[in-house]
Design a binder for these strands. Structure first.
Length: 1056
RNA sequence: GCUCAAGUGGCGGAAUUGGUAGACGCGCUGGAUUCAAAAUCCAGUUUCUUCGGAAGUGUGGGUUCGAUUCCCACCUUGAGUACCA
């Protein structure tokens, strides 16, 4: 009986589903283990072989942990809010909810519920599923996807994962996002107390305000909050109080400068922008002021940084987060601006406006800077403000006004991207104003320059040209003096920025000090003057939380007199309203502005028609929705609760206490500064407020590497023949396919030779050719290459020419330059993508080789964390292994397994396999355990092993990797329970003990021959035996050895 | 520019408390089986070689009895990040 993987795999997949084999229990005596994959966004394109890589690895680990006696939680779900469904909805009017369902559940067959619900038999979408009934949508048409949508779930099921699907989550499901809304409310109802170093309920802040005002409150809050006393507070109107509280809440509404992407019509977070353009689509991004919800993640900067030391993540990932948080320690220094009479006029005007922090009567204008080098304060020779700095317009003198205005205008025109790309050009303008040095009281010219960023620090720097290269370049360019304050350092060519080697000079009280001492002293002196203090700055900015999109969580927020109000928890979820179109409104409001029923009735506590808005009982609801990372920042807690018990809370206390956090998290490294940072932030917040009891969500994290595609290329010359007199085209773009070598030669030789013509000529009709040779006709031979679908190419890179011609009609009549009767394609490794025709579909692999082969091969390709190219040809190796494995157990006449005593050799094979596989899994070195299995099966086959005592444990070892074949053979061995319940075999050292060792005998470190010697032989005896050996004598060739190194049990090395 | 990771046969890759480089698989070559093909099985496959051997893990140097492994410099590739004061 041979190995019928299709039947076997189907059988066991059904068995696992029917018996809920992998359902996790919340009550168990076993220790818990939580293995999680980053949940996928269900795109219509479906899976390619790169997607399941991480899932296979985590599945192997989960199955292994079950064998090791753990109660394993291994769930899966969908991050189902997001842009692609909405973009598609904009084009077609098909509700994103429906696309999402189809993408997950598929619309393949008539048995499928989704099909009946939304899709007609011919593939057209039922009218009631469409918003705009005038747009015909066909699910089987190319504009949608590849004709048919299998659905993520079906594709995943085929691979045989041990997911507990009973706990599935979908972030777009109202029962789920109810709790995303709830967490949002909790953030709103909290503030960050720096004294207790945690988030606290807003009530504790209110009572502080009521009893002592805000002067003693040490909170993370907006800058520029005026001081008030308890009396003041109690005297404020309710609206004034709310306005103040908003400056303290962990999620707050603020007019912020945001990254606005006009093409997408939405705001983007910093991590959604790559090289100044949107990560999705590559559209330009501009800065724009908007009122937005923000998350005060900056409150957690230090804890997010410290927490990294407590978790088992890769160094590179931790480093990314550290960079993103961007902690720098230094000082803030205040420089007073030397006042002119022009400025004094401004001051009088400003003083009439309340709460302006930069202006007070004693020090009219001040510039606050942040520096990491307060020790170099005597080296300051100018100051630079960002062009956007608010003081610029106030301090610029009449004489410089034209220059400054022109410069500001010029920089405003440059996009963020230009400014980033062009670092070399130095530009700036002098304001005409001077600041006063805090110690020397010398005047310091104030410049503006776009190398100073408005968004970092205070948007102003004290420029120390001798110690900072950018300041140095600026000073050189504008001919500003560069005083040297370093002892024994030449600064005629470049700035000196080595902190460690710094010795300060020409700096009064700092002279002779090193960096550390001078920094401390400078801060002390600044504090004495009241013009500075030690300060730590973070690059991490508060995260904008509003998106002008439809397909996201609605905010549980309505507005009374412009002040946001939270809807009570018991009325959640606030369900996404229906709209007629998914575009922004004509007035530029988000898509929710199109909803007719989108107002909050405070009397009846429900969403009602906008017509009822009276601003007394019925108020407008928030029109923005939450960003993609909202739902993914806490989903790992939702899985902890069994589906049946989900209701009263996002997860019960018992469930949270039992599962704690994720033990192993596997996913892509692209989430380093997005999802992985926001999740940590939310978890820390939830811990502070007592909703969960862990500080970090993911204890161990592994990034799987990308699987790349191996693209195939064809190379061709497409020639045309033109009559030069009549301009008649006799042959138009006829193709001759050439080898890569010919192509490369033509490419490198250019037009210097007639190579291309020479290649083409044999394919041209005689009569035409003669005329070409006589120059009566003109032959044009442009050449090119293009991708060819990898499915037309076999393992030896040979192209299926017929299939190719049918695929690309323009090449129907093409000629092929053949070698040995075949055309060989060129290969190149690239990202897997449809446009490169190198996508390999896991379903096709499962069909042809089976899921077990796919699983083994994905692991066998190389180390999990490394990027590696996919090459379908290689899968025959692991497939052949599975066949051999099958043959080891099942012969032509049935089972080959008996109760015979195992041989010594077989025991040795088994135990060294147990040892290696266990080590490999613990180290996530899955590729090497696949070869270990191959070696084991090869050895046992050679040993003709039939012993159950060997073959039974071997199946358990293999079952995490190839669960279907393992289950089948296990049941054939007479077991009635799933192999997943079997205990992992125990390694016994005694079977590996050897009595002799095949010693490598090396000369000067080079191994020349080996010698079998007993392991209990003494060092001296080994040396004697080796030296007496004929090969040794021959090797030495009469020379006297200088030294003989004998490492018993390892090696012998003879020097000489 | 900075940070991190990595450079090993035709290809994917294996080997690190420093101790037999190239496991395992693909591909390739030859053979068996077959009317033939597929499948399967067997043998070979780093390079050079006077068939005794010799060289060899990006390059150059160093430490060591011994280096793919440790140290220094450089080159190349990939990833991240970028005027962060």
């Amino acid at each position: 009986m041979s190995y019928h993987f299709n039947e076997i795999e189907k059988k066991w997949q059904n068995y696992w589903a029917d018996n809920q084999t992998f359902k996790a229990e919340n009550n168990s005596d076993k220790p818990k283990y939580y293995v999680l994959d980053m949940f996928p966004y269900p795109s219509g394109a479906g899976l390619h072989v790169g997607h399941p890589l991480g899932y296979i690895a985590s599945d192997i680990y989960a199955r292994y942990k079950r064998h090791k006696g753990f109660n394993v939680l291994h769930p899966q779900g969908y991050d189902s809010f997001g842009l692609p469904a909405e973009q598609y909805a904009i084009q077609t009017g098909l509700h994103p909810k429906i696309t999402t369902e189809i993408n997950i559940d598929g619309c393949l067959s008539n048995e499928n519920k989704i099909l009946e619900k939304y899709v007609n038999e011919d593939g057209s979408i039922k009218n009631e599923a469409l918003i705009d009934k005038n747009i015909p949508v066909n699910i089987k048409d190319d504009n949608y996807q590849d004709n048919i949508i299998k659905g993520y779930r079906k594709q995943l099921d085929k691979i045989g994962f041990s997911f507990d699907w009973s706990r599935e989550v979908r972030t777009s499901n109202p029962e789920y996002y109810k709790w995303t809304q709830w967490i949002f409310i909790q953030l709103f109802e909290s503030w960050y107390n720096n004294d207790s170093n945690k988030a606290e309920p807003i009530e504790t802040l209110i009572s502080k305000f009521a009893s002592e005002g805000n002067t003693k409150v040490n909170a993370v809050c907006d800058d520029a909050i005026a001081e008030f006393s308890a009396e003041d507070w109690n005297g404020f109107s309710s609206e004034q109080q709310q306005e103040i509280l908003l400056k303290y809440r962990l999620t707050y509404l603020a007019e912020t400068e945001v990254n606005w992407c006009p093409a997408l019509g939405t705001v983007l977070a910093n991590d959604e922008i790559v090289n100044g353009v949107s990560e999705r689509g590559g559209h330009p991004v501009i800065r724009k002021k908007m009122t937005q919800w923000s998350m005060r993640i900056s409150a957690y900067a230090e804890r997010l940084l410290q927490g990294l030391d407590t978790i088992d993540w890769t160094d590179s990932l931790k480093e990314s987060q550290r960079n993103w948080i961007g902690k720098s320690v230094g000082a803030s220094v205040t420089f007073n601006v030397n006042m002119t009479s022009e400025m004094l006029k401004h001051v009088q005007h400003d003083l009439s406006e309340p709460h302006s922090e930069l202006v007070s009567e004693s020090h009219p204008y001040k510039i606050e800077v942040f520096t990491t080098r307060p020790d170099t304060i005597y080296g300051v020779s100018f100051m630079t403000l960002a062009p956007e700095h608010e003081l610029v317009s106030k301090i610029t003198t009449e004489a410089q006004k034209a220059d400054v205005d022109a410069y500001i205008e010029a920089t405003a025109k440059r996009s963020e991207r230009d400014r980033m790309a062009d670092v070399k050009t130095i530009s700036g303008a002098f304001t005409g104003a001077y600041a006063e040095h805090p110690f020397t009281k010398e005047p310091i010219p104030i410049w503006i320059g776009d190398y100073v960023l408005a968004g970092y620090g205070t948007g102003a720097v004290m420029s120390v040209p001798c110690g900072d290269q950018r300041d140095y370049d600026f000073a050189k360019h504008f001919d500003i003096p560069i005083p040297n304050i370093f002892e024994g350092v030449d600064i005629s060519e470049e700035a000196f920025s080595d902190k460690e080697k710094t010795v300060i000079a020409n700096s009064d009280f700092l002279n002779g000090m090193n960096y550390k001492k001078a920094t401390k002293r400078a801060i002390y002196e600044l504090e004495q003057l009241g013009q500075g203090e030690g300060k730590t700055n973070y690059r991490l900015r508060d995260a904008v939380f509003s998106r002008q999109r439809y397909w996201g969580e609605p905010f549980p927020v309505y507005y009374v007199n412009g002040m946001p109000q939270m809807i009570e928890q018991k009325h959640l979820p606030i369900v996404l309203p229906e709209v007629e179109k998914y575009l922004p409104t004509e007035e530029g409001e988000p898509p929710l502005g199109r909803a007719d029923v989108w107002a909050w009735d405070t009397k009846n506590n429900k969403v009602v028609s906008n017509e009822l808005i009276d601003h007394e009982h019925v108020f407008p609801l928030e029109l923005n929705t939450m960003p993609g990372w909202a739902g993914s920042s806490w989903y790992f807690f939702r899985y902890m609760e069994e589906a049946a018990n989900r209701g009263e809370a996002f997860a019960s206390e018992d469930a949270l206490n039992y599962w704690e956090n994720v033990d192993l998290y596997i996913g892509g490294s692209e989430h380093a500064t997005g999802h992985l940072l926001y999740s940590r932030f939310w978890v820390k917040f939830m811990k502070d407020r007592g909703f969960v009891n862990v500080e970090e969500p993911f204890k161990k994290l592994i990034n799987q590497g990308m699987i790349l595609g191996t693209s195939a290329f064809v190379y061709y010359i497409f020639y045309s023949i033109i009559d030069q007199n009549t301009k008649e085209v006799l042959v138009n773009k006829k193709s001759v396919f050439i080898s890569r070598e010919s192509y490369d030669r033509i490419h490198s030789e250019g037009n210097k030779t007639n190579l291309a013509s020479d290649i083409v000529k044999p394919y041209i009709e005689k009569s035409l050719l003669n005329k070409i040779n006589k120059k009566e006709l003109h032959l044009m031979t442009p050449f090119s290459n293009s991708h060819v679908d990898v499915s037309f190419v076999n393992a030896s890179d040979e192209l299926d020419i017929e299939a190719f011609k049918n695929w690309r009609l323009e090449f129907k009549d093409a000629e092929f330059e053949l070698e040995d009767g075949v055309y060989k394609v060129g290969r190149e490794v690239e990202k897997m993508s449809k446009s490169k025709y190198n996508v390999v579909n896991p379903d096709a692999i499962c069909e042809q080789y089976g899921a077990d082969s796919l699983r083994l091969y994905e692991m066998f390709l190389g180390p999990l964390e490394q990027a590696k190219p996919w090459n379908t040809a290689g899968i025959t190796g692991v497939h052949g292994f599975l066949k051999k494995l099958w043959k080891l157990y099942v012969g032509d006449n049935g089972l080959n397994v008996s109760d015979t005593e195992p041989s010594k050799d077989s025991l040795k094979t088994l135990h060294k396999t147990i040892k290696k596989v266990e080590e490999d899994i613990e180290n996530f070195s899955f590729n090497t355990s696949v070869s270990t299995f191959m070696i084991a099966v090869n050895e046992l086959t050679a040993q003709k092993c039939t012993s159950k005592a060997i073959l039974e444990p071997l199946l358990i070892l293999i079952s995490p990797y190839a669960p279907h074949i393992a289950e089948e053979l296990w049941s054939r061995l007479g077991h009635t329970e799933s192999i997943s319940t079997a205990a992992f075999p125990k390694f016994e050292e005694k079977h590996l003990v050897e009595s002799s060792k095949n010693y490598p005998i090396s000369f000067n470190g080079k191994m020349r021959f080996t010698l079998e010697l007993p392991l209990d032989m003494t060092k001296e005896d080994i040396e004697k035996t080796v030296m007496a050996h004929e090969k040794t004598i021959a090797q030495l060739d009469g020379r006297e050895p200088k030294k003989v190194i004998v490492v018993p049990g390892k090696i012998v090395n003879i020097v000489g």
